[in-house]
Amino acid sequence: MNLPKVRYEKSDNPNNRKRQALTTENPVGMRVVSLLGDRDLGWLSRETGIPVSTLSDSVLKGISKADNAVKIAEAFKVSLDHLLVGRPAEKLSAAPVAAVDDAEWEDVPLFDLRNVTDTGKGEPQSWTPFRRDWLNRSLGTSFDLYLVRLLSDYRSRLGDRDLAEGDLVFVREITPGELADGHVVIWRREGGLKVARYALAPRDREDGDVIYPGEVADDQFVPICRIYGKYLQRI
């Protein structure tokens, strides 16, 4: 399927010629278009300092950089949760987004998941700076996070938070005593690693990848790290 294009709407009205009629099938892009209202990408570029060409790509394909997402959310005066995943306003954090010059940054390491165990992670492959306020607003924490690329898929209960092999995710170490119902965790098991949700009890209709307390108690599955979110998408 061909990607939708950003086009200028033709009109006999000179004022309408200056207004971009944006079309996209990307959910984040559609929220950007909705938030723009009667404004255009030129306005958003002036507010954020992001080139119009980059903003156009963001409308078509989604926002690929965390710092750009923060700037766009700040320009629209909405939270990152609303901009990126469409959470209703009443469920969003009211914490303000700091100005770029005042923001604190957190260097987040990337580890090879094949080297991550319940006793160590090996050497980091790289480090990436993220705004601390963005991490806190998007993931609920900025403490002791690191990045890994998944080695397998994960099927969520409702199918709306699925993860795929190769996805880049934010994680943090977790012990059995810290597990809570609903946590999505990378587990060590005989034969390799598995991504699954921790559930205290079966539901009437249980779909997706799930681990229960009994499987943890007898060491069938050992929690390695909790997944907090896919890059630019909370889990």
Score class of each variant (00 low, 15 high):
M1R: 13
P4F: 01
K5P: 09
V6R: 12
R7K: 12
R7T: 15
R7P: 06
E9M: 10
K10N: 10
K10G: 10
P14T: 10
N15W: 13
R17M: 09
R17D: 04
K18L: 14
K18G: 12
R19P: 04
L22K: 10
L22M: 11
V28D: 08
V28F: 02
M30P: 01
R31A: 02
V32A: 03
L35M: 02
D38W: 05
R39Q: 15
R39S: 12
R39L: 10
D40P: 00
W43V: 01
W43G: 01
R46Y: 06
R46D: 15
T48D: 07
T48N: 04
G49H: 00
P51V: 11
P51S: 05
V52Q: 12
V52R: 14
S53F: 02
S58W: 06
S64H: 07
S64G: 00
S64D: 11
D67H: 10
N68V: 00
A69C: 06
A69S: 07
V70Q: 11
A73D: 03
A73P: 04
F76P: 00
K77E: 13
K77A: 12
D81H: 14
E90C: 01
K91T: 11
S93F: 07
V97E: 09
V97R: 15
V100N: 07
E104A: 14
E106D: 09
E106Q: 10
E106M: 10
D107E: 13
V108P: 03
L110H: 05
L110D: 00
L113V: 11
L113T: 01
L113W: 07
R114S: 15
V116P: 09
T119F: 05
T119E: 13
E123D: 13
Q125T: 10
Q125H: 04
W127R: 12
T128R: 14
P129W: 07
P129D: 03
P129Y: 00
P129I: 07
F130P: 05
L135Q: 07
N136D: 15
L139V: 03
T141P: 00
S142C: 04
L145V: 05
V148S: 01
V148W: 09
D153L: 02
R157T: 11
D162T: 04
L163Q: 05
E165A: 11
G166H: 02
L168H: 05
F170S: 08
V171K: 07
V171D: 04
R172N: 09
T175W: 03
E178R: 13
L179S: 04
L179N: 05
L179D: 08
L179A: 04
A180V: 10
V185I: 14
R189S: 10
E190R: 15
E190N: 12
K194M: 11
K194S: 07
A196P: 03
R197F: 03
Y198T: 06
Y198I: 06
Y198G: 00
L200Q: 13
L200H: 10
L200R: 14
A201H: 14
P202K: 12
R203W: 06
R203I: 02
R205M: 11
D207C: 08
V210H: 05
E215Y: 07
V216F: 03
D219C: 03
F221M: 09
V222F: 01
C225G: 01
Y228A: 09
G229V: 09
G229K: 06
K230Q: 13
K230H: 08
L232T: 03
I235A: 10
